[in-house]
């Protein structure tokens, strides 16, 4: 295939956002409709903080790839935006203000001790992607910012309308991003449309943006599943007393190892993953991997159609 014109290429990138950006994710849809419960908002805020902490690290990796001083001069502004000029300023600080506003302990959020395994994997995957790809693909992966301005406006309106218990000072991060994201995106888009000179380059950029959309999506999958109440799929047959405990489905049997059998018996549609962790902690005091095990198991089983997640 031949190289697309800059306008065609931009349209292709925007189409990826239309189809795959996380504004379509069920969790964001519910957030913006106003139907999230307070504990779901808090889980999202605590977990998304981990994503925020990865952004300056990702931008530092991009800086280290850039040969052009003009590029670096602009891009370094992103790190300043997140980290602030001094203690108590910047995007990370604003996110902790959001944590305050939703009733979380900011020290605990900053310690990252409640970050869900799936969220950690998604965010680390983004840093790994940038670390292992060239400047062009790394910049292309940042182009989800093209769609960030709109989602911030939607979000501010939704919080004002539906979550009045969240103090208005908490929304300053979103407000700051409505200004920063479009400017950042314009720079990134200009760079990518200029530097992707061949069809192959353009394909690589599109792939990078798709990958980034997947990462944001899977972050929300993990947040979403934490408060959902998992239950066995209607067609699944559990065989927990088999010599090899397993669940049988239409196209596969999934063997249950280790703690899976015990976790599965608690997935009866009445408890959330968070509540299952709490129940198992009482049964097995001192067991240190429960959070990882339970959330990891439920996410994996939902992905295999063994479990259905109900809200």
């Amino acid at each position: 295939m031949t190289v697309a014109t800059p306008a065609e290429f931009e349209a292709r990138l925007r189409a990826i956002g239309d189809a795959r950006y996380h504004h379509r994710h069920p969790f964001n849809v519910r957030m913006h409709e106003g139907t999230l419960r307070p504990e779901e908002i808090r889980t999202w805020v605590a977990n998304r903080y981990y994503y925020q902490t990865r952004i300056p690290i990702k931008d530092g990796l991009i800086l280290a790839k850039a040969q052009d001083p003009a590029f670096r001069r602009d891009w370094i502004g992103r790190i300043h935006d997140h980290d602030g000029a001094r203690e108590g300023e910047g995007g990370l600080e604003l996110w902790l203000a959001l944590a305050d506003a939703v009733g979380l302990d900011r020290e605990r959020v900053a310690s990252q001790c409640d970050v869900l395994p799936g969220v950690r994997r998604a965010c680390d995957a983004y840093v790994d992607f940038v670390a292992s790809h060239d400047l062009l693909e790394s910049v292309a992966s940042s182009l989800t910012e093209l769609f960030a301005g709109d989602i911030m406006l939607t979000r501010i309106a939704a919080f004002e309308a539906h979550y009045p218990w969240v103090a208005i000072e908490g929304l300053r991060y979103f407000q700051s991003r409505t200004r920063q994201a479009p400017a950042d995106a314009a720079f990134g888009l200009a760079y990518v449309t200029r530097e992707a000179r061949t069809r192959e380059d353009q394909d690589r950029c599109a792939g990078a943006l798709e990958r980034k959309c997947e990462i944001l999506w899977s972050l929300l999958d993990a947040v979403d599943s934490a408060h959902a109440r998992p239950r066995l799929a209607a067609d699944a047959i559990p065989r927990l007393d088999d010599a090899e405990p397993m669940v049988v489905l239409s196209e596969r049997a999934v063997k249950l190892g280790g703690s899976g059998r015990e976790i599965l018996t608690l997935c009866d549609g009445t408890r959330s993953a968070v509540e299952i962790v709490a129940e198992l902690s009482e049964r097995h005091p001192g067991e240190s991997h429960l959070v990882e095990d339970v959330h990891g198991f439920i996410d994996e089983m939902a992905g295999l159609s063994v479990l259905i997640l109900e809200h």
Partner: peptide, 13 residues
């Protein structure tokens, strides 16, 4: 590969 990245589609073998 492209389709696998899209949400809510079938699992493709």
């Amino acid at each position: 590969e492209h389709a696998r990245g899209e949400a809510d589609g079938p699992e493709i073998l």
